[in-house]
């Protein structure tokens, strides 16, 4: 399904068109479920999260028009943010979970979000301009939803150091992306 097609379905969903919503679910739920699983690493919780995500999509589809994001990026952002809210709320150590379940790293053949391979190459070449561990911290935060405290523990640095690392890295990353 192409981006314009998904755009149409989101627009129709904002008009409370259930048939469009069903189609949107059919064409995007595997992706969004993949995002929920990646962050939550728990199938039952990811299923609940997925329902919450589509309830938000139903309620907030009209906001898509004021976003600069591509339709899939917009949907994924909802799934990502909701999943991160959930892991923060459950207050279990993500670090332990991650060791327990072993489904942390993207398995072979993960699907990149962006349709434009160029954009993806660009963000990774900008990440390469950062020091290795800092680039790794940015990626771990973004892909796995680690908090500052979890990142500090994983990378063996004080919390404030991690904050400084990450903030500077994000600003450098953006500067590179806008270059």
């Amino acid at each position: 399904m192409t981006a314009p097609d998904i755009t149409k379905l989101i627009v129709r969903t904002s008009m409370k068109d259930r048939a469009a919503f069903d189609l949107l679910y059919r064409h995007t739920s595997a992706k969004l479920f993949g995002v929920c699983l990646r962050i939550l690493r728990d199938r039952a919780e990811a299923e609940e999260a997925l329902q919450d995500v589509y309830i938000k999509i139903w309620a907030k589809a009209d906001r898509f028009a004021v976003s600069e994001l591509s339709p899939i990026s917009w949907l994924v952002a909802i799934a990502r943010n909701h999943s991160i809210d959930r892991i923060r709320a459950r207050r279990r150590a993500t670090v332990e979970l991650d060791e327990a379940t072993g489904i942390v790293d993207p398995t072979p053949g993960p699907e990149a979000l962006t349709m434009a391979a160029g954009e993806r190459a660009r963000v990774f070449s900008c990440l390469d301009e950062l020091e290795n561990d800092r680039a790794a911290a940015v990626k771990a935060a973004y892909l796995s939803g680690f908090s500052y405290a979890e990142l500090a523990e994983r990378f063996g640095v004080p919390l404030n150091t991690m904050r400084t690392w990450l903030r500077r890295s994000l600003m450098k990353l953006r500067e590179c992306l806008e270059r």
């Binding site: 679910y25 739920s29 595997a30 992706k31 479920f33 993949g34 995002v35 699983l37 990646r38 299923e47 997925l50 329902q51 589509y54 309830i55 139903w58 600069e68 994001l69 591509s70 990026s73 994924v76 952002a77 990502r80 993207p106 398995t107 053949g109 993960p110 699907e111 990149a112 979000l113 962006t114 434009a116 954009e119 993806r120 660009r122 963000v123 990774f124 990440l127 990626k139 973004y142 892909l143 994000l170 990353l173 953006r174 992306l177």
Partner: peptide
């Protein structure tokens, strides 16, 4: 920021069980 960082995203698509959609419809 979402637009800047989203090209980094990657995930393994996974088909949710049919029950997820049924429960979603019930809830909505």
């Amino acid at each position: 920021w979402e637009a800047h960082l989203s090209p980094m995203d990657e995930f393994v698509p996974a088909e949710p069980p049919a029950s997820a959609k049924r429960k979603l419809d019930e809830r909505l």
